[in-house]
C-alpha cells in the first residue's frame, strides 16, 4: 500500500514546485503589468509564457549558446574540483599549510576579474586559455573550503582509533578521511556547480563572441527580447548542474542514501 503512494508523491512534489514557481512568476508579472501599471514591467519581470515563447522561437540559438557555455563550465568545474581537492588535502595534512594558505585563498577570491583579466591575459596571451583559467579560478574556492571543513569534522576519536592501530597517513585518508569528507565534498560541489555555470557565463562576457553570456550582454546593451530567455537558460543549466551532482552523490555515497531514506521513513 505504501509503495504506490510514495511513488506518486515523488512525482507530485516536483510537479507542484514547478507549478508553484510558474504561478508565482506569472502572478508577479501580472501584478506589475496590470495592477501597478508599471511602465517598466516587461523589464522588471516579463510574463514567463512570453519568455518561453521567445525561447522556443530562438531555440536553436539558445541551445547552441547553452551548449558552448555548459561545455566550458564542465571544464572549469572539473579543474576547480581537482585544485580544490588537492588544496583541501594539503591543508588538512598540515596545520601550517592551512594557516598560511587560508588568508591568501581569501585574498585571491577578492581580486575581481576586472583586475585579474589583464594579468591572466598577459601571462597566457590567449583568449581561450584565459577563459578556462578564470572559470577555474572562480570555481575552486567553495569546493576547497567545504572539503576542508569535512576533513576537520572527522571526529578525533575515530582518527585516534586508527592511529592506535598504527595506521599510516595514506590509510587514514583512504579509509576514514575521504569517506567521511565525501558528504562535505558533495555539498561543496553542489554550491560550486551552479557557480561554474555562472563563471562560464561571465567568461563568455570576456570575449562576447558566443555563449549565453554574450547573448545577455548583447541584449542588455542593444535591447531586444532575448535577455530573459538567456537568463532562463542560465537558470536551467544551474538546475541541471546541481541535479547532476546530486545524482553523482546518490551513486557515490550509498551510505548517505540509506540514512536519508531511513530518515524519510520516520518523518
Amino acid at each position: 500500500m505504501k509503495g504506490p503512494i510514495r511513488k506518486k508523491s515523488r512525482l507530485l512534489v516536483p510537479m507542484v514546485w514547478i507549478a508553484g514557481v510558474v504561478g508565482v512568476w506569472e502572478l508577479v508579472a501580472f501584478l506589475l503589468a496590470e495592477v501597478l501599471k508599471d511602465p517598466q514591467a516587461a523589464n522588471k519581470l516579463p510574463y514567463l509564457h512570453d519568455v518561453i515563447v521567445v525561447f522556443v522561437q530562438n531555440a536553436d540559438t539558445m541551445l547552441q549558446a547553452g551548449e558552448i557555455t555548459l561545455s566550458r563550465a564542465v571544464v572549469g568545474f572539473l579543474l576547480g574540483i581537482s585544485i580544490g581537492f588537492i588544496l583541501a588535502v594539503l591543508m588538512s595534512l598540515s596545520k601550517i599549510i592551512e594557516k598560511i594558505a587560508m588568508p591568501y585563498l581569501l585574498i585571491m577570491q577578492m581580486i575581481p576579474i576586472l583586475g585579474l583579466a589583464p594579468i591572466i591575459f598577459s601571462l597566457v596571451k590567449d583568449l581561450d586559455t584565459s577563459r578556462i583559467v578564470i572559470a577555474t579560478y572562480i570555481s575552486f574556492y567553495p569546493i576547497a573550503i567545504n572539503m576542508l571543513s569535512g576533513f576537520q569534522a572527522v571526529a578525533k576519536d575515530r582518527k585516534d582509533l586508527l592511529y592506535t592501530y598504527a595506521a599510516k597517513q595514506p590509510v587514514v585518508y583512504l579509509k576514514l578521511m575521504f569517506p567521511s569528507a565525501l558528504p562535505s565534498f558533495f555539498t561543496g560541489m553542489k554550491i560550486a556547480a551552479p557557480m561554474a555555470v555562472t563563471a562560464s557565463i561571465l567568461v563568455d562576457m570576456l570575449s562576447n563572441k558566443d555563449g549565453i553570456g554574450a547573448i545577455m550582454i548583447y541584449s542588455l546593451y542593444g535591447g531586444g527580447d532575448k535577455f530573459w530567455p538567456a537568463v532562463l537558460t542560465g537558470i536551467i543549466m544551474g538546475i541541471l548542474s546541481t541535479a547532476a551532482v546530486s545524482l553523482l552523490e546518490w551513486l557515490c555515497v550509498p551510505w548517505e542514501r540509506h540514512s536519508r531514506q531511513r530518515e524519510g521513513d520516520s518523518v
Binding site: K190, I191, P194, M195, V197, T198, I201, L202, M205, G213, M216, I217, V231, G234, I235, I236, M237, G238, I239, S241, T242
Partner: peptide
C-alpha cells in the same frame, strides 16, 4: 541554487 546560476552582472 538555481538562482545562483544567474550571473551577478
Amino acid at each position: 541554487s538555481a538562482l545562483n546560476a544567474v550571473p551577478i552582472v
